[in-house]
């Protein structure tokens, strides 16, 4: 299933809708609208600021409702993991958080996503500015292969037209590459094309590239699924480091990974094929894995389902 999902982001985006296709079976509709998630991470419960918050978020591919009514808060300087079976809408939900979702033909979203209290889906909101403030790292490493390593880092600042001198650029490159733990490996070939790096290095470069525009929030869509275990561990270390400075939201299929890197975890699932994905339970990661309230969460985290 992982490879299937890898394809969906690579190729025809319409394939993604296939994951959520199926007969409509609105039997559980009532139960969910009345019940809702067992435990929710609410803004009030969080100590400290929370830069990003989703309210009643719904996502669609054409007429397919793929994510329904998600309310979720992402606190500052923490890692929030989104887990759940394939097709539960967690990746789609993630892409709604910086308006990448709408780039897919036929895709749209309703509800609010607030960044520092302002709705990114508001009438005046500019998706370009949103994406600049909420960065993203993808499932497959996607550096600009023809650009040099240095130019990959500078691509974002170039878009945002940050003015900096030559020295400033060099410092930014070094700073972000160090931040991504890549500096020592590439410092001697900054002008080499990024396409020549290994998969793990490419992914760290992508993280560095995302950091270079100074986002408030970093979204990571299964950032390690295309990497070997060694590279995965390096990225996980990096995620923990980065979480000291900004909010990170990570989608992962690997529950150990969720347990290792995240402070909070949100569990998504679908009742059955064709139903929209819903948020079932959120909470501190330890509790979600150690003491889940919802039987479905428990089934999933103990490996009996999903």
């Amino acid at each position: 299933m992982t490879t299937r999902e890898a394809r969906t982001t690579m190729e025809d985006p319409k394939v993604t809708t296939g994951d959520t296709q199926g007969g409509a079976a609105p039997l559980t509709q009532v139960a969910v609208t009345s019940g809702g998630p067992d435990r929710l991470l609410r803004a009030e419960e969080i100590a400290g600021p929370h830069p990003l918050q989703a309210r009643d978020l719904n996502a669609y591919f054409g007429s397919h409702h793929v994510v329904e009514g998600v309310n979720l808060v992402f606190p500052e300087n923490t890692v929030t993991a989104l887990i759940g079976p394939s097709g539960c809408g967690k990746s789609t939900f993630l892409r709604c958080l910086n308006r990448m979702h709408e780039l897919i033909p036929g895709a749209r979203a309703t509800g609010d996503v607030e960044l520092h209290g302002q709705d990114i889906y508001g009438k005046d909101a500019d998706p370009v500015a949103v994406r600049r403030a909420v960065g993203m790292v993808f499932q497959r490493p996607n550096p600009f292969p023809t650009k040099s390593i240095a130019d990959n880092i500078l691509a974002g600042p170039k878009f945002t037209r940050l003015k900096m001198g030559k020295g400033g650029r060099a410092d930014l490159i070094e700073h972000t590459l160090r931040g991504a733990g890549l500096w020592d490996e590439v410092k001697n070939r900054l002008d080499a094309p990024a396409g020549g790096l290994s998969g793990g290095q490419q992914q760290r470069l992508c993280i560095a590239r995302a950091l270079a525009v100074e986002p408030d929030v970093l979204l990571m869509d299964e950032p390690c699924s295309a990497l070997d275990p060694q590279s995965t561990l390096r990225i996980e270390d990096l995620i923990r480091e980065l979480s000291e400075r900004l909010a990170i939201v990570i989608v992962t299929h690997n529950m150990q990974q969720a347990a290792r890197v995240s402070e909070y975890t949100a569990f998504f699932t679908i009742e059955e094929e064709g139903q929209p994905g819903r948020l079932i339970e959120t909470g501190p990661t330890r509790e979600i894995f150690g003491n889940p309230q919802n039987p479905r969460t428990e089934a999933y985290v103990t490996g009996r389902f999903g």
Binding site: E11, M100, V128, A129, R131, V137, F144, F159, R209, V213
Partner: peptide, 22 residues
């Protein structure tokens, strides 16, 4: 590849910047 254009968009590129750089 789609991920190339998404990489640019995710950095806050406009459509033209995406085209130009990716």
């Amino acid at each position: 590849p789609r991920d190339q254009s998404e990489a640019a968009f995710a950095l806050g590129a406009t459509r033209w910047e995406m085209v130009r750089h990716s």
